[in-house]
Computed example of a mutant assay.
Amino acid sequence: MNDLIRQAIAAEADERVDPRTVLANLHKAKKRKPFGLIVGVATLTVATAAAAVIVPTTIKKTDASPAAQQSATAQNVLLIGLDEVDHTDALMLARFRADGTGVTIVSLPRDVFVDGEKLNGLFRKDPKQLTAAVEKTTGAKVDHWAAVKMAGFTRISQLIGGVEVCLKAAVTDPITKAGFPAGRQSLVGDHALAFLRQRHGLPNGDLDRVKRQQAFLVGLASQITKENALELARGVNGMIVVDDGWDVLEFAQRFTGPLAISMSTLPVESEVQRETGFGFEIDPARSKEFVGKALDGGDTSGGDGCVN
């Protein structure tokens, strides 16, 4: 197994990081403790996908044993983006195909109400509460979860040399004053984080922020190569926390290069106000039907790739 890991992450460099160290932290999801800086996911649950996108793409599918490939099954992974106080600001349910060729992701707006509570406060109470609420909402079983703090995406975007996104129109965040021009652009460092966190000044607020998270993740995944995988693996080391039962190495062995990614967003009904603040109601039957079709490969996205 050590040889496999070494082959997967080895790269020409004066300073090498022991791949065993890189992946070891991904196996450790002890009782909750400070997660360290990882990308103040104040909106980028997408970023959480770093655990399931960056690491797997550093391992060649041909390195996995035939037995491991034959026994692989589709996996539903809950990708959780956390802010500085462990509120869930980004949330995605990702189904990774058994053959390792791609992933289908359904974003869940953080302010959806489930049994009177918004999704964004559940992880802080107990990760199991969040996964149970997601299963009830989507009708899909959560096999594993990975959590990341979004502040880490500042560093990740720097390591990869910028993440390309496309905006339909120029926009300025009235709170932070961060501005972004229309069209395609490469986001790096604090500018990338500002893009991921913006919701003010967008036509649909948090729902548009979800679209930005999706666009950023797709852009990030498309730029992962064999050449930059080592630096990325080093960069996410210690940033990502996964559940205790997830063998990330075994999971990673099924993948080959950048994944084909399909994105969609859980449909919401009216916005309502409760004691816990404003949030979205959902239609349980409609939600389960939508997620079922999306995870099974239905085309629910569309669009030209540009977001608000």
Rank of each mutant, 00 (worst) to 15 (best):
L4S: 06
Q7C: 04
A8V: 10
I9R: 09
A10T: 11
D14E: 15
V17G: 13
V17Q: 12
N25A: 13
K28L: 04
K31V: 13
R32T: 09
I38G: 07
V41Y: 06
L44F: 14
T48N: 09
T48C: 10
A50N: 13
I54M: 08
P56N: 15
T57H: 12
T57N: 14
T58Q: 12
K60S: 14
T62R: 13
T62E: 11
T62W: 02
P66A: 12
A67I: 03
Q69N: 04
T73W: 00
A74N: 11
L79N: 03
G81L: 05
L82E: 01
L82D: 02
V85G: 12
V85H: 14
V85R: 15
H87Y: 07
D89G: 15
L93V: 14
A94I: 00
R97Y: 07
A98S: 12
S107L: 09
R110V: 04
V112H: 03
E117F: 13
E117H: 14
K118A: 01
L122S: 04
K125F: 05
D126M: 03
D126Y: 04
K128T: 09
A132S: 13
A133I: 01
D143H: 10
D143R: 13
D143V: 07
W145P: 08
A146V: 11
K149P: 01
G152A: 09
F153T: 13
I156V: 14
S157N: 09
I160W: 08
G162L: 01
E164F: 00
E164W: 01
K168Q: 05
A170T: 04
V171K: 02
T172P: 03
D173A: 03
P174C: 04
I175T: 13
A178I: 02
G183C: 06
Q185D: 07
L187S: 00
L187G: 00
H191C: 00
R199I: 03
R199L: 02
P203F: 12
N204Y: 00
G205P: 02
G205V: 01
L207S: 00
R209H: 02
V210D: 10
R212H: 07
R212D: 00
V218T: 11
T225L: 12
G235Y: 13
G235L: 12
G238T: 08
V241T: 15
D244S: 14
G245N: 12
E250Y: 03
A252H: 00
L259E: 08
L259S: 14
S262A: 15
V268H: 04
G277C: 10
D283Q: 15
D283F: 08
A285R: 11
G292Q: 11
K293F: 02
L295T: 07
L295R: 03
G298I: 01
S301L: 10
D304E: 06
N308C: 00
